[in-house]
Design a protein around this nucleic acid. Structure first.
Lengths: 238, 238
DNA sequence: GAGTGGTCTAGACCACGCA
DNA sequence: GCGTGGTCTAGACCACTCT
């Protein structure tokens, strides 16, 4: 690993600004000072400041609106769904899930969970198991693992909202900005039959997702089993 | 639909440059004139030209290298695979497919094909059916539909390369820059059993892909059936 | 009209690749 | 040492929003 002997100014400013946003110097949805003010504050030109703010906007970290100002991006419910929930009808229209039943337990972390979430040893985790409805029918069986120390008290919030990521942000200061997903096909087992009404042996889409914060910290591991014969998982690669 | 009464200069320059790249004014892999030269040629400042070139770089249309120049992005085989082929091992390591058997036919387009590829009526299509190997085993069964007029003569090129997108680019001047995919789980049928050695009823990942050019023209429709028990389809959302 | 982000320019200097 | 892209600045003007 070569350490860069040269660090552009805008890179340094970028790191400072990301740090500030991550630390919550400004709340989600709140407006930042103007370009001018920030540039003065950090002792750089307005052009350099702009480069930084534009970069952060491109990464969905900030939102800028001409005439209004620069705002910390907020995972509103719709936006959060729109970004990370990818199921569509054959026509390409997005569907949105509704809440089903849920159970929450706090327990010791298993080895695999420690590994997937980079948890320290002896860490406790929160396990959320829930179903979600698509088109009025139970269609998704989800197991969600969270670090108990990061999400202290989430087990007492019942019922949980449908879009957990906005809850993470508003109540725990944790802003999910990217996810890594792996998809595998599977066939319905007895659990799927019981919870989703899927015939044994029916095709199931399994999604294994790790959700990460700004600083690339892995904070949620989610396993979803989806039985939705008429829907597909849509993604655009470019 | 409001028509924008105001068109920034860099937008106009962007459109001109994209048009030039699309028309093949410079070949894939070739270098463009320098920022300075292009700016002079189009009568804008170097800063504006830079903004355009940077935007095109961000869209994988150009590549820029300090000290060397600006180049038309080329879908080299590895790059093309890296971008659009998403299968990974449980550890997250990418696997690359190898060529299997293939058949090519030219025939009249079906209604569904006309619709998916926005083809004019009476258009003929080329249908490529092939298998691809993963880890030495037949694992992917693919049906590829192309407009016969765009890819005239491709049916005589046997064997076809593993990475079709570089062939489209080098021999037909068609540069795939984005794809829209829909994933659905399915269970193995007799074809899958025969061609891939999948047990009847085994889980199969189906991918329905439309590939698009720079101008958002839909040029390829590809249906893949994947039987790969130890692999997953990986994607990062951000 | 005041304040914000958005565009555009001109010019200086830096880092990199290559001959 | 030259030419390339990469960084940084200072300043002008434009478009949008709100009051």
């Amino acid at each position: 690993m070569e350490f860069p002997g040269y660090r552009p100014l805008y890179r340094q400013v970028y790191d400072i600004m990301v740090e500030k946003v991550a630390k919550g110097v400004w709340r989600a949805g709140e407006s930042l000072p103007s370009e001018q003010a920030l540039a003065r504050e950090l002792g750089v030109s307005q052009g350099t400041m702009r480069k930084v703010l534009d970069a952060m906007t491109a990464e969905n970290l900030l939102e800028r609106h001409q005439g209004k100002g620069t705002f910390v991006a907020s995972n509103t419910q719709e936006r959060s769904l729109f970004r990370f929930f990818r199921m569509v009808t054959p026509d390409g229209e997005r569907v949105t899930p509704a809440r089903g039943v849920e159970t929450v337990v706090v327990r010791a972390a298993r080895t695999i969970e420690q590994k997937r979430l980079d948890l320290p040893k002896k860490q406790r985790v929160i396990e959320i198991t829930r179903t979600r409805l698509l088109e009025g029918r139970p269609a998704i069986l989800e197991t969600i693992i969270l670090s108990a120390s990061l999400f202290q008290g989430i087990e007492t919030r019942r019922p949980l909202p449908n879009t957990l990521y906005s809850l993470y942000q508003t109540d725990f200061g944790i802003n999910i900005i990217s996810t890594e997903e792996q998809l595998r096909p599977d066939i319905a087992n007895k659990d799927d039959q019981k919870m989703l009404g899927a015939p044994l042996g029916a095709p199931i889409q399994c999604i294994d997702r790790i959700a990460k914060t700004l600083q690339d910290r892995k904070v949620e591991w989610r396993l979803s089993r989806i039985y939705a014969p008429n829907l597909a998982y849509a993604v655009t690669l470019s």
